[in-house]
Design a protein around this nucleic acid. Structure first.
Length: 429
RNA sequence: GUGGGUGUAGCUCAAGUGGUUAGAGUGUCGGGUUGUGGCCCCGAAGGUUGAGGGUUCGAGUCCCUUCACUCACCCCA
């Protein structure tokens, strides 16, 4: 038979690795709870139009990266390439603004983009998304960035860099855009092919081109920050001031332009050089026009996304304490003892004890080996010999000591084992 | 979509310029006295060398095609 492999860019997360993911998620939930961020779950599939309108028609994501198909009802649907549009859709659809003027929401789940896979980039990838909706105050910007940095710090991740920029607003951006267009107009030579194209479609994007020639050209280009209107300027200054309250180091990157159309004012990114070419662990920004753009009230919002795969790869590997080893392994010798083992093993599990057993007829030696491999604290040896006397041998795998216990009553055995296991834990502490 | 690199056992890797039966470590299973793990020793199973075609007396090795993986560009988490 031919085997079937997973789809390109879609990864399995195997036991052993899953624990790390769960740890990261649990930590995130803990911190969200402190910051008053509540979970929202949204569908993986949306009407294509949502992303076209939300993300922007002329973005790479919408132009060439979406998994879009027509369903049997002849409706164009798309596997979500990001979460913000969906969250806002849900927010508007259920009029959450009417319940509370400020909503802090998070959601965790898979996203889909049909790009060429490479290090830190997959076609199905996972994000932790946080959105603060309803308040335009720079306090919100500072708070959400602080939240992000606290979470990353709590996961033991080091060597991170926080980068900030302001993208202006519909008031001031057109002027800047015009200035850039004008600037680039007669600098055809020195620009790479991509940038020549960008010059017409999205001139701001020329700013984060990595080609040396373009960088030199851009070095003399007008600075976005010089064009900010008074409101945007004070907003940006305040965000920085509030971040300084927590001694959060950051760097202003005037060249940072985010790829999604909806961003306004504050844009930020957290990078780690060890990630390779895809160095961003998290990125986000303010989107004061998006909610109205999607038919909702004209209220502001700000959010970020953390790339789970990238996050996991940055987490220190040292802690293997994620896995819980069995408390006891029951080694049975013979058919009747095996039936007893089956009953006892499952009884112990129902009593909350992590128990495993040998299901096949195997030598005691091989069962002991398995117990050792599973790193069970104890092994219960149950053979015909013991059964005749209504007892079993309980071996402490670490000490190597062994004692006889009675089989009269499963409750007593469970209790004895619980005592032993907890007693051991105290010793370790 | 474009370019580079790599495909040999479950995993990590060997096999001078083409040459007999494709090896090792690790993992799996078994054994080293009757029913006792780790360390050590022995043994076994496990491969259509990614797939297809070509050159040759002979291909894991050379050529072509294709697929997969991987890194990078574009862009993004």
């Amino acid at each position: 038979m031919e085997t079937i492999a997973s789809v390109r860019g879609f990864k399995d997360i195997l036991p052993g690795e899953v624990e790390k993911w769960r740890y990261a998620e649990e930590k995130a939930r803990e911190i969200f709870s402190s910051f008053g961020v509540r979970e929202i779950q949204i569908p993986i599939l949306e009407k294509t139009e949502l992303f076209q309108r939300g993300i922007g028609e002329n973005t790479d994501i919408v132009e060439k990266e979406m998994y879009t198909f027509t369903d049997r009802g002849n409706e164009s649907l798309t596997l979500r390439p990001e979460a913000t549009a969906s969250v806002i859709r849900a927010y508007v659809q259920h009029s959450l603004h009417a319940r509370d003027p400020v909503s802090k929401l998070f959601t965790i789940g898979p996203m889909f983009r049909r790009e060429r896979p490479q290090k830190g980039r997959y076609r199905q990838f996972h994000q932790i998304n946080v959105e603060f909706i309803g308040v335009g105050s720079p306090f919100m910007d500072a708070e959400i960035i602080l939240l992000l940095m606290v979470l990353l710090g709590n996961l033991g991740i080091e060597g991170l860099q926080l980068e900030l920029n302001s993208l202006g607003c519909p008031e001031c951006r057109p002027a800047f855009r015009q200035a850039v267009t004008h600037f680039l107009k007669d600098r055809t030579e020195g620009l790479c092919e991509d940038c020549l194209r960008r010059r017409d479609t999205n001139p701001l994007r020329v700013f984060d081109c990595k080609v040396e020639g373009c960088r030199q050209v851009i070095a003399h280009a007008p600075q976005l920050l010089d064009f900010l209107c008074t409101d945007c300027k004070t907003h940006f200054e305040n965000v920085q001031a509030y971040l300084k309250v927590f001694d959060l180091p950051f760097e202003i990157k005037p060249r940072m332009v985010r790829g999604l159309d909806y961003y306004t004012r504050t844009a930020f990114e957290v990078t780690a050089s060890s990630l390779g070419a895809q160095s961003a662990v998290a990125g986000g920004g303010r989107y004061d026009r998006l909610i109205a753009e999607l038919g909702g009230p004209d209220i502001p919002g700000i959010g970020f996304a953390i790339g789970m795969e990238r996050l996991i790869s940055l987490m220190p590997a040292a802690n293997e304490s994620f896995v819980q080893n069995p408390d006891i392994f029951i080694a049975a010798l013979g058919d009747v003892p095996r039936l007893w083992a089956f009953a006892l093993c499952n009884y112990l599990r129902m009593a909350g004890i992590r128990a495993e057993m040998g299901y096949d007829e195997k030598s005691l030696k091989s069962q002991m080996k398995r117990s050792d491999k599973l790193m069970c604290s104890f092994t219960l040896i149950l053979g015909d010999r013991e059964l005749q006397e209504n007892k079993a041998e309980l071996k402490d795998m670490k000490k190597g000591t062994q004692e006889t216990i009675k089989l009269d009553n499963f409750d007593d055995i469970a209790e004895a084992i619980i005592r032993k296991v907890s007693g051991r834990n105290e010793e370790i502490v």
